[in-house]
Design a protein around this nucleic acid. Structure first.
Lengths: 148, 148
DNA sequence: AGTGAAAGTGCTTGTGG
DNA sequence: CCACAAGCACTTTCACT
């Protein structure tokens, strides 16, 4: 489905989408229209879901990250996820195997804001309790694009 | 530092960077060159760190996500982070407050690959143990851009 | 800082191999 | 599936407000 050239293009575009097609073509040894054709195909296939910017995490005045693991009972996780989606501070939401059935990543300006958020989460039906891990440092974030 | 128009532009570009400057200008009531000027300023200020693509998580044949919380002793977290960076399956790496001093997000093709990775992590000096949470569902991932 | 017009550049499409 | 060439749209710059 995806050959090596496709994977190289994905890796290159992941680094910087504003590379010229001619530049990409030189690297993968293809002409600009050929690169264009492949990229469009990746878009249509849904492999490339969208073109976005990476924003400096601290530029927006939100300095506090935390992971919260939720202990859930009775209520389906998907239903809780819909409620959590309405809290703008909740940036990621997962279901997981284990005692804590859900895990979220939250992003707030201050500890006080985090406390308010946790208060709201505590009141959600089905949430029996949670464990919070404050993030002290983000060492790296990246994406793994295997070339096989 | 960042006014409301800047934040709107960031939110719009986050959704789709291939919007035309004229299109952005209509929304924020500015001319294309004015939008251009602001975007360049955001780039120079480091608020916009880069332009990337979003890749469908399952398109690359990696179907298994897991969070691993590491119990660390003796060794500085930053040193462990450098070692973890050499494992391509480790996509995110954080230091956190609490009993488990570090937390990583890993992305592998199969449970067998995950096991091999955990074996390697287990052998790292300073890693006393870890707890693994397999991700069953990713409900949402997004970014919070406050408009204040 | 923002506007308007003009120039430059790369994207995009059609034709052909 | 890819290379070549041309039309076209957008980005980018410049002079001015």
């Amino acid at each position: 489905m995806l050959d090596e050239i496709d994977r190289m293009l994905l890796a290159l575009l992941k680094q910087d989408t504003r590379r010229k097609y001619s530049e990409l073509g030189e690297i993968v040894h293809l002409s600009p229209p050929a690169v264009h054709e492949r990229v469009k195909k990746l878009e249509r296939a849904g492999v490339i879901r969208g073109y976005t910017i990476e924003i400096a995490p601290d530029a927006l005045g939100l300095s506090l990250y935390a992971f919260v693991r939720l202990r859930v009972s009775r209520v389906p996780c998907e239903e809780l996820a819909r409620t959590l989606h309405t809290f703008s501070e909740v940036e990621e939401c997962y279901s997981s195997a284990g005692t804590e059935s859900m895990m979220i990543k939250v992003h707030t300006a201050t500890p006080a804001t985090l406390e308010l958020l946790l208060d709201r989460i505590r009141q959600m039906p089905g949430v029996e309790g949670f464990q919070t891990s404050i993030v002290l440092a983000t060492h790296f974030q990246r994406e793994n694009i295997p070339m096989d």
